[in-house]
Computed example of a mutant assay.
Amino acid sequence: MLSKNTLFALSLFPYIGFLWFMTNSGKTPRLALVGFYVLLIFVAVTIPAGIYAKVHYGKDLANVDWLHGSAELFLTLSNILVVLGFRQGIIAKQKS
């Protein structure tokens, strides 16, 4: 059975494929696309934050509130951008 860390790392490949498709399709609202890319920032921040939590506090990231909350900020931002981007796309489609 794969460890959660291995599975997490392997999941990046299909996500990068998804980003490639969404970017090249030209049909994804720009703001939503930015939100999908911000999710990569969340991943990039979460990995070192998890290591820092383990090394300096001896705990998992989820158990170090200030660090976990700071990393989750990027996930929240990503979600907001995706929702607002698709909302803009729907409104623009309805107007045309």
Rank of each mutant, 00 (worst) to 15 (best):
L61N: 01
V45L: 11
G17T: 03
V55I: 12
R30M: 11
W66N: 10
H68K: 06
L73Q: 08
L19S: 06
A62N: 08
T6G: 00
L12T: 13
N79V: 04
L19D: 03
L61S: 01
Y52I: 15
K4R: 12
G58T: 04
K54V: 00
G17Q: 06
N79Q: 08
L73N: 10
L81N: 04
V45R: 06
N5A: 15
G35E: 01
S25P: 02
A9I: 11
A62G: 06
A32C: 02
L19V: 06
G35C: 05
Q88W: 07
L12Y: 12
P14H: 06
G85N: 05
T76K: 11
A9K: 11
S70L: 13
G17V: 04
L67C: 03
K59I: 06
A9N: 10
T46V: 07
K59C: 06
I41R: 00
K4N: 10
R30L: 13
L2C: 00
V43L: 03
L61P: 01
I91Q: 14
N79L: 10
S3H: 06
V83R: 01
G85M: 03
L31C: 00
I51V: 14
L75T: 04
Q88N: 14
K54L: 10
Y37M: 10
M1C: 11
Q88F: 08
L40E: 10
I16P: 03
I47S: 05
F86R: 12
L77Y: 00
L33E: 08
F74P: 00
V82D: 02
L75S: 11
Q88Y: 09
W20V: 08
A53T: 01
L39A: 11
T23L: 13
S25A: 15
